[in-house]
Every structure is written in C-alpha cells, then in structure tokens.
Design a protein around this nucleic acid. Structure first.
Lengths: 244, 244
DNA sequence: CGAACTATTGATGCGTTTCAAGACGCGTGG
DNA sequence: CCACGCGTCTTGAAACGCATCAATAGTTCG
C-alpha cells in the first residue's frame, strides 16, 4: 500500500531518488474505489482533480452530437489520468471505469509543486504525455488508412501488451474485458462488424477465442498485418535532467 | 529577429519574466530555411534535434506498409516540433514543409536545461503537448464517427483558426495551401471524394471557393455540422507555478 | 427465473473507393 | 513565345467494404 504506482512505472525507465519517491507517494495518499461502468469525470464537468490509476482498467471517450461514442484511450495501473481536463474550464473527455478500479485523486496544485521541485519528474510526465500522443497518432493512422480487420487486430495487440499478461507461448490467452460494442467504439466500427472481424481473425489462425478470453496465436503475422508498434518500448531517456 | 516565436505564443496565456524570455530566445538562436516539399526529419531517422517553427506551414505524417499516407498534424509558427522523436531511438513520424519555412533547431540538452531552470516553462511545454493531444483526439473522433463531409469541414475550420487569418465578415477567404490529396490524407479520404465534399459544402453555402482560396461562409453552421472545437481557446492556467 | 445486456448470423443498402478520362494551370526548355 | 509535360482538379460509372436492420441464441445478474 505504501509504494506509488506511478513511481513503479517510471522505475522501468529511470532510477528514482528517495526524494522523488516521496513526492510521488504524496500524490497517491488518498484512495477511491470505483465500480465498473461508473464515471470518474464527465465531459463538460469542471475538472479540478487529477488521478493516478492504481488498479483496474478505465477508458476515456467522447459522445458526439448524434449520440455516437468514440473511445479515445484505455488506461491501466500506473497511468496518470485527467491531465487534459485541468487545462480547460470544461473537461473535454469522459473518464469511465471498465472494471472495479482504485484511483488516487490529487489536486492541480500537487502537479504544480511537483513540477517546481522535481524537474526530472516534470520531464517524465512530459515524456508520458508524448508517448500517449504517439499512441494516439498510431490509432489515427489506423482509423484513417487501414481495414476493419487491421484495426481490431492492432487493438487486441495493444490491450494484451498494456495489460502485461504474458500469454506468449502457452497461448492460454487473456481476458480483454471489453464488449464487442466497446471494441467497435474504439476502432470506429459497429459491434456487428467487430464480431465478423473477430471470427475472420480466428478462422485465419491469428487469434484464438474461448468465451471472453482471447489469445494471440500468430503474433508476428498479426503485427505485420496491422502496423502495430508498442510505444512503451525502445525509449531513449538519456537526455533527462538529473534527479533531486 | 530578436524575439522568440514560441515566447510570443506563450505570451497569449501567461506573462513571461525577463529570464524566461532570454531562455526561450536561446532556443531560437540558429535559423534554417526549408523549401516546400523538403523533409525536416524522416520516420526511422535518429532524431536528436528539436525545432521551433518560425515561419511557414509544415506537417507530420506516417507512411504505412502498403504505401498509404496518414497526415497526423499541421504545424504553424510558434509550434515546437519533434518532441516525440527525442523519446525514441527512431523517429516515429516524418516532418515535412508545406511551404517555404524557417525553423530554429536546438539540441535535446537545451530542453533538459530549460526544464531544470524554468519550471513554469516546463509546465507550459507540458500544457502545449496536452493541447495537441486533445486536438488529436478530436480528429480521432472525427475519423471514427463522422461523415466525410464533416471531416473535411472541421479540417477547414482548424486550418483557418490556426493560420489566424481573419476572414470573418468580409468573406474574402484564406489560402489553405494544401492539395486535395493532402486534405484526403489528413481526413482518411481519397482526393476524389474530398473534391466532391468540397463541392457539396460549396453548394450548401457553407464555404466559398475561388481557385485555391477558401472562405468560411456559414461558420456557425459548419461548426454545428462538424463538432469542431478550437482547443487553443478557453484555457485555464491559473494553477501554473510562478515564473522565475 | 426473468429481464437486460451481449454475441451471432443473414439480407439489404449506402457511403466511399476505385478506375477512367478530360480539363485546367504552371513551370521549363527549346 | 510557344509547346510540352506534369501535377492538380473535376466528373462519371462501377465495385466494394462496412453499416443498418432484423431475428435468434447465449450470458449475467438481481
């Protein structure tokens, strides 16, 4: 319960100082549990809080005028949520829990203090913002220029990688925890067509399915067919300032 | 020639201190001119430099395996370019000039120093990254869930706003400086269909066209039809740390 | 055990792509 | 100065991918 989730994620890339660990732990002092389906922040709310996701899976989406939903991003433990909302008077996106989740809320002022006293942590938040930005451009390219099958396939790869469920080899698969409608709202398709694409991927031997579990059967083939790149890999952070 | 372009953009939101202005000016000491069509950084290059765009219009795009191009973002004077490339060993995107441009290249270490000595500027870079991120999610929602006509319309609104050409009232229009193929590669459409959508928008009285010039004739109507929001407006930056 | 959500499958329709051909503009070299 | 070539714009006809509509079966949860 003591350690910071965000710190754990950062530790995969840099060695944190004791001071930095303490500062991050302060952001996660408070805990809040949210149930599947409940909304952490609704679009057009005035969002004053930030969150670190400690446990579970969440998503952010927007609802357009005609009622259509576009899921923008999925979130996993260690992610910082709601950064975009503190820029604006009104939050641009809705944040919603896809499973039983635990989040740690903190104030805008907490971020401000962190930036002032720990430049390297400020740089790391900047870096994670850029990683998300690049991941978004990947999905933009997928929606703009790839087929329905490729979009569904790349989403499966992304979810598997971000969940850190190691199903390589054994092929026993992972729980994706999404309905086909949610996959559709993330990939710009209808639930019906998502269903057909999943069946096709299965018939081609790319994936296996068993109830709500999915297994990547031909990872190399799927990656080639979908242009998927794991943007959390291959980072070069040698230019960061020194830690305090 | 003295002032920093980036500083000018930031000044619209916060009052910079003398120290901050100097630090920003140092980033823009060197100038480089690039011709229309030439590439500033190619995807998979090792990108060590960052840039501030001083003059002209640029774009970033990716080319997929099948040769299709997706334009991710358009850039205007005062934008910081190439942030995403310094995270990775290989640049994820190609940056290319759409007109005669002037850019100011600087090293990764320059960013690092800036973050260390000027926390508020670090926060502002973070903020601008988030603005871009939100603008990308708007385009993601457009590609995933809106019609071809709406995508083209919202792109026209975005280009008009970011160019800061004030064609309101007079209706004499602005140069958009893009071919229909480029509009298509940004909106996930073919050049042929972009042409048809432009004609339809014209027939409906939403826009006017004269050669390569475009005028927004019914701004309210277009905005309603396209879900467009200017993400550079309505910022609340009261939580920022104090300047040094 | 029933209600509500989720998955599955088929038939039909629409929006966008693809293919094709011609017109217009623009810079270049003869 | 004109002729040529190339890129861009424009328009039509046909094909295709995905959406829509509809109906049934399966699953989850109170």
């Amino acid at each position: 319960m003591a350690g910071s989730c965000f710190a754990e994620v950062l530790s995969e890339h840099i060695t944190l100082t004791e001071h930095e660990r303490e500062a991050l732990a302060r952001l996660e002092e408070r805990n809040r549990t949210v149930k599947r389906g409940s909304v952490l922040r609704r679009s057009h709310d005035t969002g004053n809080e930030l969150f670190v996701l400690r446990k579970g899976m969440m998503m952010t989406y927007v609802i357009l005028d005609d009622g259509a939903r576009q899921i923008l991003r999925f979130h996993f433990p260690g992610d910082m949520l709601g950064l975009s909302a503190i820029l604006y008077e009104e939050a641009p996106e809705t944040i919603c829990a896809l499973s039983e989740c635990v989040v740690c809320p903190f104030e805008k002022s907490g971020l401000s203090e962190l930036v002032e006293t720990h430049p390297r942590l400020a740089a790391m938040i900047l870096v994670y913002g850029q990683i998300e930005r690049v991941a978004l451009t990947d999905r933009l390219a997928a929606l703009g220029r790839t087929s329905a099958k490729a979009r569904v396939g790349s989403l499966l790869l992304e979810l598997r990688n971000r969940q850190r469920t190691d199903d390589s080899g054994t092929g026993n698969g992972f729980m994706l925890g999404l309905t086909q409608e949610e996959i559709g709202d993330a990939t710009g398709l209808t639930a019906v067509h998502v269903n057909r694409m999943l069946r096709q991927l299965e018939e081609e031997g790319m994936i296996g399915r068993d109830g709500t579990k999915v297994a990547i059967r031909d990872e190399a083939g799927l990656m080639a067919a979908t242009n998927y790149v794991d943007r959390y890999q291959g980072l070069d952070l040698s230019w960061l300032p020194k830690g305090r």
